[in-house]
């Protein structure tokens, strides 16, 4: 296995795995410092469990309101979709689409694809459409912005706090938990391990 060369995806340096200085499970390119690969906990079940947890949190995050306001006895609150609907009505469908895509749709697609890939791999079978789905994972990743959204909610709360009583909704805690699970997931995720499992699996 170790005789196969690897190449840095950011500077094209050709290396043999044995030459790479490893530090705490992360192998860095000796020339440009890019992350070559992670030696995560080699456990696809662990990844699958995290993925399912994240899916549940994402579902909950969209059922409950994110933030609420009390203005003179009136209570107003909004979910992500409620905010998108209002943006749509206010003639900014692009912004509405971007909001739903980056906070709900992309994470949903990303997590469902990951579950679809990991579930068969855990029992040694090859998932259907592995290659295009893996590619879609790579394309989707930069567009999931749950952590930025959380900060956005906090900033808007501060802006509103002078005119009304602001309340954090249930969903913001779900988004927060989702952010943590996604962070663990991305540190534990080693694409090379997935490809290796795929090569070793039954067709």
């Amino acid at each position: 296995m170790n005789t196969l060369p690897i190449a840095c995806h950011e500077c094209d340096l050709l290396l043999h795995k044995a030459e790479v200085p490893g530090a705490r499970g992360v192998m860095l390119c000796p020339r440009c410092g890019a992350e070559l690969c992670r030696v995560g906990p080699d456990n696809l079940q662990f990844l699958l469990a995290l993925t399912c947890t994240a899916l549940i949190l994402l579902l909950l995050a969209n059922l409950f309101p994110v933030v609420g306001l009390n203005i003179q006895g009136h209570h107003v609150d909004t979910t992500v979709f409620g905010a998108a609907r209002q943006l749509w009505r206010d003639d900014t469908p692009i912004v509405a689409g971007l909001l739903v895509a980056t906070t709900v749709l992309v994470p949903l697609v990303e997590l469902s694809v990951l579950a679809w890939l990991l579930f068969p791999l855990c029992s040694g079978r090859r998932p259907v459409a592995f290659v295009p789905l893996f590619r879609s994972l790579q394309l989707a990743r930069p567009w999931a912005m749950v952590e930025v959204f959380i900060l956005g909610v906090l900033v808007s709360l501060v802006k509103l706090s002078h005119m009304a009583d602001v309340l954090l909704g249930t969903a913001i805690w779900c988004f927060g938990a989702l952010m943590l699970v996604l962070a663990v997931l991305s540190t534990a995720f080693d694409p090379r391990a997935l490809w290796q499992a795929w090569e070793e699996a039954r067709v």
């Binding site: 107003v76 609150d77 909004t78 209002q86 930069p142 930025v148 959204f149 900060l151 956005g152």
Partner: peptide, 25 residues
């Protein structure tokens, strides 16, 4: 860091959704 610039878009989205007819503004 590029993604963090979306911050203001989210702030507008939340404010638009919350500050509607029921309130003074």
């Amino acid at each position: 860091i590029g993604r963090w610039s979306m911050l203001d878009v989210y702030v507008v989205a939340i404010l638009v959704a919350l500050v509607q007819a029921q309130s003074l503004a």
